[in-house]
Design a protein around this nucleic acid. Structure first.
Lengths: 213, 213
DNA sequence: TGTGGATTTCGAACAGCATTCGAAATCCGT
DNA sequence: ACGGATTTCGAATGCTGTTCGAAATCCACA
């Protein structure tokens, strides 16, 4: 693999990411449009990635890694701040949901890539299920479990995991069903105010990990 | 519109529903397959529904109505049981999430239709957004709000709506991200046991509507 | 600096898709 | 039994992602 290959592959990924961010729906993204934007031909996609699907997967993985890193950094900060005591529950939850909320409200972020990617995984069937591995990537979420156990030692791993799963559900509801959220709250919350939304989410999620609820 | 038209249109809808339930991914569903299954031609879809998209939308709406009816029946029962006192919080929540959970675990239900439909709404762009109206259908969820307000009168409509939105997020997480749920709980919960899952969800959601949490 | 093999790019061709449209067939009130 | 409206059909259209062999480019080595 020479130098030229790398630059084309990256150009294709950049073009794909840009178009994914601009697109309202996945069907707007065609191999030919990606190729034009990247100053290449559709064949280049097949050559470098095997298929358009795998190109999108690669792009999503790249974006996903950035988001994960942000989450883990926040978690680490929360842990360090109180070490050796357990971290603040509120901070851990904010680390879990904050980056997604912030990305989703930031018009310049690449969050649409992830939104489109998850929907692609549901429409396109892939036996090997490349993306299942990414969408349902639970590995990097696991690091939250031991910290939450320190905070709520009376809950076992299953209980912690179940509550985290619920928290993730709330997270994706707010990020992916924005309009529904607006309607249900009667437009009474400013969903563009990320900090406010995060605080509200913490209000709801934190009690799950407190005693006596 | 004669009699023949009705039977063909319904045959197309039935075929579409059947195939949607059997399909693992939306891309497996083609206009030709629907036509064959319904003993018709692809043109019939365009004639009766305008497009394949609108056919799927019609089918989804039909299924969605059945699910909604089930929800509302359960809510009514919960209300009647305690009338004129406010209904039991647990029963209201079970009415909100129960039917979806039960459908999602029942292999003979038409739940896959709804799963595929929501993903279609994200991939296909439609200016008029026929399906937004269905997916984000919040109207029939609104009837839960006054009941929840009776149970938690110290919460205003915005607070109630926000918590309901969170509950819906948990609901769709469990129904749509089954594998992720399995992984996070370390396979420690029997997700095929609908009643158990519903009870666990009530455990998590109910405190949102209780004082002092 | 020139050459040969590997790497990368390209463009034409292919199969599949949803949809369109005019003609044929069918229905149904008269 | 007729005739207008409704419904069905089949071929054609333009789009899609992908394939493939040939052309072009690169790069190590002489």
């Amino acid at each position: 693999m020479s130098n030229r290959a790398n630059v084309t592959a990256r150009r294709l990924m950049d073009a794909c990411e840009t178009l994914l961010c601009e697109a309202d729906a996945l069907e707007e993204l065609t191999a030919r449009k990606i190729a034009v934007q990247a100053q290449a031909t559709p064949s280049a996609i097949a050559y470098h990635f095997g298929s358009q699907e795998e190109l999108i997967t690669a792009v999503a993985e790249r974006v996903y890694r950035r988001l994960n890193a942000e989450r883990l950094t926040l978690l680490q900060k929360a842990v360090d701040r109180r070490a050796p005591k357990p971290p603040e529950l509120e901070e851990v939850i904010a680390a879990l949901v904050g980056p997604s909320i912030r990305w989703a409200t930031d018009p310049n972020s690449s969050y649409p890539v992830l939104a489109h990617f998850t929907s692609m995984a549901h429409t396109h069937r892939d036996g090997a299920s490349h993306y299942r591995r990414i969408i349902e990537d639970v590995e990097h979420h696991r690091v939250f479990i031991p910290q939450l156990r320190r905070i709520a030692p009376w809950l076992d791993d299953v209980e912690i995991g179940w509550r985290m799963n619920c928290a993730l559900g709330i997270r994706s509801q707010v990020t992916r069903s924005r309009h529904r959220t607006e309607l249900l709250t009667n437009y009474g919350m400013d969903l563009d105010d990320a900090d406010l939304v995060i605080a509200r989410m913490v209000d709801v999620i934190a009690p799950m990990f407190r005693r006596g609820c």
